[in-house]
């Protein structure tokens, strides 16, 4: 039950049961024995599955050049670096591996680095992938941001207009109605010589007016943050669906 072979079989069983933590423990017990490259590779994969990218990377690095899994381990190592956002490491892709080059493109799109020329980035993709990456590139280069200054100016001129500009339609209409009503009540109160009430509603009107200007600027900031978030989420989802451009292994068939 505790022989090397038994432990290996049991670890494989745990791995295929998706009990990765226990599989790692078992593999580590026999990591120094024969076939340790395969074991290290599986340890790395198990760490990857549970989102422990640093130890995963360290396991992949241990695999020797003469190993059957060497090239896969290189790919997986670069994948861990991508997931750790160590994008600079991807540039040092000495093996010139295509999936790493493809991940490197996404490091440009996800990071704040200067974007290279579009055609150069797209040259390593084909078909649907190429179209999708091209779309991401355009969205990164010309994000549909809303200007805070424009939102402020619009709300200063017409209460609520800044909110409508940032696509917060119901907020914009409500801001316009509330500010207008408060102003109108204040005006009629002063006209009827109800000075106290007039000042109260004038104060409320000013409060709503100023709040709406501030809110429009904040709304533009939120809108822009959403644009960035959506682009980043869409790209991450795309890469995930593509399995990070790395073919899957059939250990559990």
């Amino acid at each position: 039950m505790y022989s090397t072979e038994s432990r290996r079989l049991f670890a494989d069983y745990l791995y295929c049961q998706k009990d990765y933590l226990r599989a790692i423990d078992e593999y580590q017990e026999i990591a120094g024995t024969a076939g340790s490259d395969t074991i290290n590779f599986k340890i790395g994969l198990a760490y990857l599955k549970i989102g422990k990218y640093e130890p995963a990377g360290l396991s992949f690095i241990k695999i020797k050049e003469n190993s059957y899994y060497y090239s896969n381990a290189r790919l997986e190592f670069f994948k861990t670096q991508f997931l750790l956002s160590n994008y600079d490491t991807l540039e040092r892709n000495g093996d010139n591996l295509l999936p790493v080059k493809q991940l490197n493109v996404f490091s440009y799109l996800l990071d704040y680095k200067t974007l290279p020329v579009k055609n150069k980035l797209l040259s390593i993709f084909e078909g649907e992938d190429r179209r999708a990456v091209s779309d991401f590139y355009e969205r990164k280069l010309n994000p549909p941001y809303k200007s805070e200054l424009t939102a402020i100016i619009l709300s200063t001129l017409i209460p609520g207009a800044g909110k409508i500009y940032t696509e917060e339609y119901s907020d914009g209409i409500i801001a316009f109605i509330v500010t207008g009503i408060m102003g109108y009540i204040s005006y009629t109160d002063f006209k009827a010589d109800h000075k106290l009430r007039g000042w109260v509603f004038a104060g409320l009107s000013t409060f709503f007016y100023a709040g709406n200007i501030y809110g429009s600027a904040a709304s533009a900031q939120i809108f822009n943050a959403k644009v960035n978030f959506k682009l980043s989420t869409d790209m991450k989802l795309f890469i995930e669906n593509k399995d990070y451009f790395i073919p899957d292994y059939e250990f559990c068939k």
Binding site: L9, F10, L14
Partner: peptide, 11 residues
């Protein structure tokens, strides 16, 4: 405990 029981089930 779970590890050892899973080992037991496996063998």
């Amino acid at each position: 405990t779970i590890t050892e029981l899973k080992r037991l089930i496996f063998f």
